[in-house]
Design a protein around this nucleic acid. Structure first.
Lengths: 230, 230
DNA sequence: ACAATTAATATGTGCATGCTTAAAATTTTT
DNA sequence: AAAAATTTTAAGCATGCACATATTAATTGT
């Protein structure tokens, strides 16, 4: 008779799905649910924690538990290291440094860090390849004042991304997905047509508020990011 | 002296950040950590649950807890209902039905449901507008054999999405992000240039294995999806 | 009428204990 | 001796109970 937390979660989820519980509806409190499901309040709590994390319900102390008013699709994407993504797909990984310069960051880059003023940064552009074919082109800006060691790294051998992941921890990360038309140069690098639509992943990282790096990764035409929701 | 679960989580996270714990490293078991942090195993378990869900550690019964070998960027996106997204941004929402037909689904659509054979489906194309400007164009296919009521709905007044959300629960959902070049017609509808790069969100839903709907949403030029990771 | 205080209530946290699972070690079988 | 079946055991996982904390509502004081 007594339920475990997964049964409870699934049953509440079913009630939401079957419209027995409508968006905005208030659930009985944990104690009452525990009686209904013939278990302790802890077990109900465990189920509710999961439902709250998946965005199905909202919980507020004293306010109780309510079904999320406006249904959303909550999706979790794992963005891997490009080399590993390529190798996991069974392809041969290749890496090619396109350019390495110390430049003033353009407004787009400064603003992605939330900075008003452009600063001098290390800009690294590189190409990741799968089975000799272009896969992802990355255009990276590194705040070398917070990570001076990067200036001594041979970036023609290893991608800045992998060096940074091994050596420069970050505390905050912002991710941004968008689409962008290929410029002449980008089309050339990615073996794409000019004006081809490219899928773009931008990532910016900070350590305790200080900028580390921002990268715009342009994927080859046809690239897709897939996830299962719910 | 005794720690709470958030302190423990943050301390483990700090050790990973500071490279005191390297990728692949094995953590002490919950019992030992409980002694170190002067608390019960349950409290450690709670911290570890959180770390596992954020992708920082992997836990295996008997195998113990290890730091994730290949760091990934795990990001959670909440994709809202378009009307609410527009209204939340303080814009006036507009909706316009472009077409409504019963057609054989093309291979692309059949395969997104995992079906080999094309079937007859209801195809609805509609435009969502923000302050009279095109915002998102959606091209939707609905399996009307599993949802026959949709055939009686006046889709010139309400978007199929909102009707479905209110009336047709789903159990599984797949999300896909990509970029696509605007065709003449798409450019026209979205007030974009031909060949403009469009950000595309595709969502396919099922109820217990049976197809419900698949939608390709083309966002206006400049659209971005943003999330904080970690 | 308004602000400050107090009470009530629902969720959150921590601890103790027992259960479940998967890897490793052992035994049995072929 | 190798392979299959079994037992052991070391980990994480789940649950029941008691207490902490936040938020709302009611009450009291000015």
């Amino acid at each position: 008779m007594a339920s475990n937390w997964i049964d409870i979660r699934d049953e509440i989820r079913r009630r939401v799905l079957e419209r027995e519980l409508l968006p905005g509806a208030k659930l009985p409190n944990d104690q009452e649910l525990a009686e209904e499901f013939d278990c302790s309040r802890t077990t109900v709590q465990r189920a509710m924690l999961d439902l709250a994390q998946s965005g199905t319900v909202n919980r507020r102390r004293k306010g109780g538990t309510t079904i999320t008013l406006h249904p959303i699709t909550r999706t979790t994407f794992d963005i891997p290291i490009t080399r590993l993504e390529i190798e996991a797909a069974g392809h041969e990984y290749g890496y090619f440094l396109v350019s390495r310069d110390i430049l003033m960051s353009p407004p787009r880059v400064a603003s992605s860090f939330g900075l008003a003023e452009p600063t001098k940064m290390l800009r690294v552009r590189a190409l990741h390849m799968a089975d000799k074919q272009p896969y992802i082109f990355e255009d990276r800006w590194i705040a070398h004042d917070t990570t001076p060691e990067i200036l001594d790294v041979d970036l023609s051998r290893e991608s800045a991304n992998e060096w940074l992941i091994r050596n420069r921890p970050y505390s905050d990360c912002e991710v941004r997905f968008l689409a962008k038309r290929a410029t002449h140069e980008e089309a050339d690098l990615l073996a794409a047509d000019v004006d081809e639509a490219l899928f773009v992943m931008e990532r910016t990282t900070w350590i305790n508020g200080a900028p580390i790096t921002t990268v715009r990764a342009l994927a080859k035409p046809g690239y897709q990011l897939v996830a299962k929701a719910n």
